[in-house]
Structures are given as structure tokens and as C-alpha cells.
């Protein structure tokens, strides 16, 4: 199948390895990945910070770029959540019904990576090898906006050699919340501290999730604690065939 990659602005700029891993998994399964070059950002940060008017051109840009594709994937539950639940509404609030309708059409063809693999492509074993102790954090928007359920876990359970351990209080938010982490930094840090103690209690060497943003938060906290536990995106584990993930440089 031909699949358009919606990389998300964060993965594009800060975590290109997540994009490369997404491409690697899909190509290994025999699909054609295309990268529409006009894409920029879904506008979620603007909408969630209160700048809906400013987000409208971003939504228009996103819709125009992805409208020609029948199948779109993003390695982010949060950005897919924004596309599905915010684009139409923000366009409508701005009085642009045409954009709202077009946005809803694009949204209906847009999937988070685990949804695409399990629901659309019917795969729950992607042939990955990752012999490490891993714990999975179900990010809030994957869990509650997209209802991905146990799809990421089904994919992880089929990874060869993996020692998948349950994260205590997994459904609790890590405290990221976009600009919440800046505007209410101390509350956010208190939430992060509890998330990190739960991660460390598992003894996992890797904490994984389907969102680079939450992983930036959890990973940033783990790095500050100088622990050896790393935050690794789900796509990177699924792409791995030799038990390693790309080291960032």
C-alpha cells in the first residue's frame, strides 16, 4: 500500500530517528512510504495554547498537503488526536466550513502507527528483535482520544527477545501537556516525578510510548536523574532487527 508519512514537527526537527524507524517498519512490511514535502505542523500546540486563529493557516496547509493521499500515518497519538478532534472544530469556529469538511475527510484517513499496523494492515508481528526489558507508557491522547487500547502492547509482545513489564499506574499522565509543562512547570514536574518512579520501579532499561513529545518529557526527566533507563519511541523498537536503536548524534 502507498502510505503518506505525516512526520510531525517535533519528530522532523528533534527526533528524525523516529521518522526513519517508521519508514523502516513500513517498508520492511512491503509498503511504499511517501513523504509529502509541503507538510509542516498540525497546529496542536497553537490550538492547545489558545491560538486557534493562528492555527487555521497550519490546518489549511496540512489539509492541502495530505488531501491527495488515501492513507496517512503519524508516529504520534497526540498529533493524530489533534487532526481527528480539533481540525474540523477549529476551522468551524473560524467560520470556514469548507476547510472543516476537508479536514474531516483527511482526518478519517489518518492513523497513528499502531492503529495503522494492527487495524489497517492487519499486522501484529512486524518481525522486530529487541532483547531488553521494556515498559510501555500509554500516552494520554493515544489512550483516551484515539482509544488505541492494547494495540501497541500487541505489537510489543511479538517483538523477539523483549522482556515487556507492566508500568504501575500506567494510565496516569506524565505531566507534559505541551505548554502546560512551562506554564505550570512545578505541577508538571510533580507529575513527572511520580511517572519516573513508576518507570524505575519496573527495572526496565527502556520506557517506550507512541508519542515523541511525552518521551521527550519522560526522557528529559530520566536523563536529569542520570539513570541508565532511556525513552525510546515505539517505532524505534518495532524497526529494530538487531536489538539496537539508532544512537542520536
Amino acid at each position: 500500500m502507498k502510505i503518506a508519512l505525516f512526520i510531525t514537527c517535533l519528530a522532523d526537527t528533534v527526533y528524525p530517528s523516529v521518522g526513519r524507524a517508521t519508514v523502516a517498519v513500513l517498508e520492511r512490511l512491503g509498503h511504499e512510504v511517501v513523504f509529502p514535502a509541503g507538510q509542516t505542523c498540525c497546529g496542536q500546540m497553537h490550538v492547545n495554547t489558545g491560538y486557534q486563529r493562528q492555527a487555521v493557516p497550519l490546518i489549511r496547509q496540512h489539509v492541502e498537503v495530505f488531501e491527495p493521499y488515501d492513507l496517512i500515518v503519524a508516529p504520534s497519538g497526540s498529533c493524530v488526536g489533534s487532526v481527528r478532534h480539533q481540525h474540523g472544530q477549529v476551522a468551524r469556529r473560524a467560520g470556514d466550513e469548507g476547510l472543516a469538511t476537508a479536514a474531516e475527510t483527511v482526518a478519517a484517513r489518518t492513523y497513528e502507527l499502531s492503529e495503522l499496523l494492527v487495524d489497517v494492515l492487519g499486522v501484529d508481528d512486524v518481525g522486530a528483535v529487541f532483547p531488553h526489558r521494556v515498559t510501555y507508557h500509554p500516552t494520554c491522547h493515544s489512550l483516551r482520544l484515539l482509544r488505541v487500547g492494547d494495540k501497541p502492547l500487541r505489537l510489543l509482545r511479538n517483538v523477539a527477545g523483549i522482556d515487556l513489564v507492566e508500568l504501575p499506574e500506567a494510565d496516569q499522565c506524565c505531566g507534559f501537556g505541551g505548554t502546560f509543562a512551562l506554564k505550570n512547570a512545578e505541577t508538571s514536574a510533580a507529575m513527572l516525578a511520580d511517572k519516573m518512579s513508576n518507570v524505575l520501579a519496573t527495572g526496565a532499561s527502556v520506557c517506550t510510548a507512541g508519542d515523541a513529545s511525552c518521551l521527550m518529557h519522560i526522557g528529559g526527566g530520566l536523563s536529569r536523574l542520570a539513570t541508565s533507563t532511556r525513552a525510546v519511541h515505539l517505532a524505534e523498537i518495532l524497526a529494530s532487527t538487531d536489538g539496537t536503536v539508532e544512537v542520536r548524534s
Partner: peptide, 15 residues
Amino acid sequence: ARDLPRPPTETFRQW
């Protein structure tokens, strides 16, 4: 309370 990753040498779109 958190570190921030150092930006990579190239963006995804460059790659």
C-alpha cells in the same frame, strides 16, 4: 526539572 535533547545534525526532511 528536565533535560532537553540536543538538536540532531539533520532534520527528517533533509534525510
